[in-house]
């Protein structure tokens, strides 16, 4: 049975939703971060699926970029989280609310 583009899209949407729920509900910065990665990869999956369905490489190019950005983001994001944890002794994002107006 050939896997249709619909199946990929549904999987992508499910992964994305799980990511959103993770971002919105979890308070640990590391988990939130992982959820964001999940959302990015959900997007990547959709790109690849449509790329193959339409026979165009554009989507795959996008994925390269997304992966690159995600890698950079992970490096910076984890560094930030480590630094925040060292100074505040917590990784709970609700405790880090000094930027409120």
């Amino acid at each position: 049975m050939a896997v249709s583009v619909t199946n990929y899209t549904v999987l992508s949407a499910m992964l994305f939703t799980i990511g959103i729920i993770g971002v919105l509900t979890r308070r640990n910065a590391i988990i939130v971060f992982m959820s964001i990665e999940l959302m990015l990869n959900a997007g990547n999956l959709a790109f690849i699926a449509f790329s193959r369905a339409f026979g165009s490489v554009d989507g795959q190019i996008f994925v390269f970029f997304v992966l690159t950005v995600a890698a950079a983001e992970v490096a910076i994001g984890l560094a930030l989280i480590v630094t925040i944890f060292r100074s505040k002794n917590t990784a709970d994002i609700d405790d880090i609310s000094t930027m409120r107006g």
């Binding site: 959103i20 971002v23 919105l24 939130v32 994002i93 000094t98 930027m99 409120r100 107006g101």
Partner: peptide, 18 residues
């Protein structure tokens, strides 16, 4: 009044974006 929107809670921003 507008300032109160910026709560400093990242998750509320994320919710707003969603």
């Amino acid at each position: 009044w507008l300032r109160t929107i910026q709560t400093g809670f990242v998750r509320s921003y994320a919710l707003a974006m969603l």
